[in-house]
Nucleic acid binder design. Sequence first.
DNA 1: CAAAATACTGACCGATCGGTCAGGAATGTC
DNA 2: GACATTCCTGACCGATCGGTCAGTATTTTG
Lengths: 218, 218
Amino acid sequence: MRSKRRSKMPGPSFIEQARHRQLIACAITSVAEEGYAGASLASVARRAGISKAAVLYHFRNKDALVEMAVNEILRELSEFIVPRLLAEPEARGRLRAFIQSQLLFLEQHRAHLLAVSYILVNHRNRRGEFHLRTKAENDALAAITTILEDGQARGEFRSFSVRPMAATILQAVNGALSQWVADPSLSLSDYATELVTTFDLATRKDTRTSTIRKAKTS
Amino acid sequence: MRSKRRSKMPGPSFIEQARHRQLIACAITSVAEEGYAGASLASVARRAGISKAAVLYHFRNKDALVEMAVNEILRELSEFIVPRLLAEPEARGRLRAFIQSQLLFLEQHRAHLLAVSYILVNHRNRRGEFHLRTKAENDALAAITTILEDGQARGEFRSFSVRPMAATILQAVNGALSQWVADPSLSLSDYATELVTTFDLATRKDTRTSTIRKAKTS
DNA sequence: CAAAATACTGACCGATCGGTCAGGAATGTC
DNA sequence: GACATTCCTGACCGATCGGTCAGTATTTTG
């Protein structure tokens, strides 16, 4: 770990950087293939072709490795989504982009999806709290909340309680992913379309024609 | 286990029945308090005040105990919900009853909720499949699907793709529960009201006034 | 009361877990 | 080539896991 290294060198060496990347990647596939309980340090070491002790040379302990893996996945995810949100001028479009881009990214990174979902629902800190899950959920909810509140302020959305709606949208996206994990033949893009329609109807003001329907009929 | 008992007696003895009930109850609280990984046979035995071997005398192995615990929880849950569904003559009411009664029951049985959610997302059979989760999800989806298809046939609901909508509703309910687990001060009945409104709007035909709103204004 | 079935204990097993440690190989740096 | 630092190995540790087994209470049955 960088944090407690007593190196005289300015930064992490090439080897250290490469190993970090490799071990994080191995940890992700290990969790994805063997589940949270089955993913051991020995399993990660085997995949990387080094000894278990070598893994612990680079990462203080198992928890540190797991947390780095989650951070990496969430970093890549938000790197994919954020530009797509910023490209949308209206709240309605940002809500659609949030749903679609999240599904699209994780459909293309199945191991990431499996690993992050296994870890988030299982990993606890010393106090027994699901701190990774809490943080990830709060970040996602904050993003959706921003969209929803902005949409209400701009008059695009009806008046509803933002927190349950944000949670419902987040859960719907997670549920779509979990359906797809169980049945990979399911079309996530079709699913995304249904979700977009559903929440368009659930959030819009009662103008009798949503942008979705307008696009279809005009 | 009954299945491999070589008893000459007609049924399970009083002691066996009582122990089964006790051990299932202990397993539930054990999982709820210590998580899926932390809930060991030793932990269950300690709670029951007997030896670990005695637990294995009554249950073939740990998996059998866990599965019995899940079955018991789901049995109690459906015992609570089904009559409430049957009491509703319209699909819209059944959808509302499904959401509300599920939240109500599990709000009153927090240990059941924790145990069942920990187990369902973690327990695998020998082939590595999440068979308990799959079965529970399919049962719940089937129930919702029946309501939705009936509602479409009766002309109460708009035309939408049933499977994603059913999954979205189920996930929304689960999400409400998971929010409440993380923050018990959250009012589940308020949350239920929001969910009912959300899915009323998402499913109804575009008649501009739902039964919910009509009830409020008339 | 004795025989038989049931209910249970405690010691033990092999496996695996995360983690430590002493020391050896590889890699740069003068 | 010597020296220090980085990188890594293999043996080992204590703990815990699910599960077995021989033997012993306890209860039921004739």
